[in-house]
Design a protein around this nucleic acid. Structure first.
Lengths: 214, 214
DNA sequence: GCAGAGCGGAACGATCCGTTCCACTGTTAG
DNA sequence: CTAACAGTGGAACGGATCGTTCCGCTCTGC
């Protein structure tokens, strides 16, 4: 098609550039469905050969790390968006809705432990925690969130939504929304409610997920 | 020790009888932790050799089937116990608490699809569904359960609790109890509550889990 | 004392999977 | 026009894993 440089490349270069995107998309879909899927499954799904993968990533671990880091960045971005929302409760629920819809939890937590994390990921994880804390604090201060809810309950909530899973992705999204609605109703402040039982989840209690497994 | 027949066997026979129990217990623990653990892990955990396993079960599939069926029977038994409880809401919540504590959900659903089920299991599954329906209907009729909750929401709830998982089993139980409390609060009837979104989970929508995977 | 039930665990064969490697193809610089 | 080569498909390789079998040993029950 067109020539040496400019917006739209033609021929081989364009195909390569498009493959960058196609491969990442396929990897997301495949590893979301099964965190320990073989790398060949990603290639198949993307409709490319295995070489196309290894040209871009040093190995499986590299791809997984990138995918997970993308999820983490998305989490941070959505949290920042939410903090800009004036309504405290809407910020909280809107944030969770978007995270659930985008399946960010599966991208991060379920992939963790399959690779050695970078230091930058550690920093982003800390930042994610801070932002989440801010959102929870605001929601609690607004009086809409029950007083005995803590930040770590977000982890339980997201895990609960991510656990919902049927073959059809769109139906999965609907059912997760329903699950989220139940959980949010359960986390809403109501007068004379029984307090939540047991010691609340503590900071760092879920850190083991990030340590290398296997 | 003692002789040919009687309550307490001594020696080899006794060891064999005890192994029956030890092996089942080890299998439960191992496969609850990882549904596709190798069979050798069960032997190790039980402190026996692999032969001791194969003497009792035709193969891995056989063991998994038995384990799953045990879970199903436990589910049915707990549901029957619950139906005998006069207080409608206590029957409902008590049932769920016991199922969550015993991790029956992991024993059944997470093991399903790894073996070809027997007809008897099919019948037990139907019965389990009927009993669960009865419990939900009673809870809803009592006015304590929100009107737009359906039986299949129990599946989502149990999945959500089973998804909570930390290395320490006792702590896992505590956190699951907390999760259960949130979900039950969310499923409780409150005046002027927003209805749950989306088409509710339908009958048979989760049957695919029981079809053979891999 | 002996037949054999019960057992431990090595060995085997079948997959499965990450990674490497090579032949091929269309593009692009000169 | 053509030589180099970036980009690619996919076969092949080596290692790991796991279910199952098998053999030799022990200790019991008669």
């Amino acid at each position: 098609m067109s020539s040496t440089s400019g917006k739209t490349l033609g021929g081989r270069r364009a195909q390569a550039a498009r493959n960058d995107e196609v491969i990442l998309e396929a990897a997301r879909a495949v590893f979301l469905d099964d965190p320990k899927a073989p790398i060949a499954a990603v290639a198949d799904r993307a409709g490319v050969g295995i070489s196309a993968l290894y040209r871009r990533y040093a190995g499986k671990e590299d791809l997984l790390r990138q995918l997970c880091h993308d999820g983490l960045r998305r989490y941070v971005a959505e949290a920042e968006t939410a903090l800009a929302e004036p309504d405290d409760w809407a910020a909280f629920t809107g944030f969770l809705g978007r995270i659930v819809d985008a399946d960010v939890h599966s991208l991060t937590v379920h992939l963790a432990g399959t690779f050695t994390p970078t230091e930058e990921m550690g920093r982003d994880a800390v930042r994610a925690g801070e932002l989440a804390s801010a959102l929870v604090d605001r929601a609690r201060a607004s009086g809409r969130l029950r007083p005995d809810a803590v930040v770590q309950d977000l982890g339980l909530l997201l895990e609960a939504c991510a656990a919902v899973r049927v073959p059809d992705p769109e139906r999965t999204r609907q059912l997760r929304r329903r699950q989220l609605a139940v959980l949010l109703a359960g986390l809403s402040a109501v007068p004379d409610a029984d307090p939540l039982p047991g010691p609340p989840p503590a900071a760092g209690e879920f850190d083991w997920r990030w340590r290398r497994r296997e």
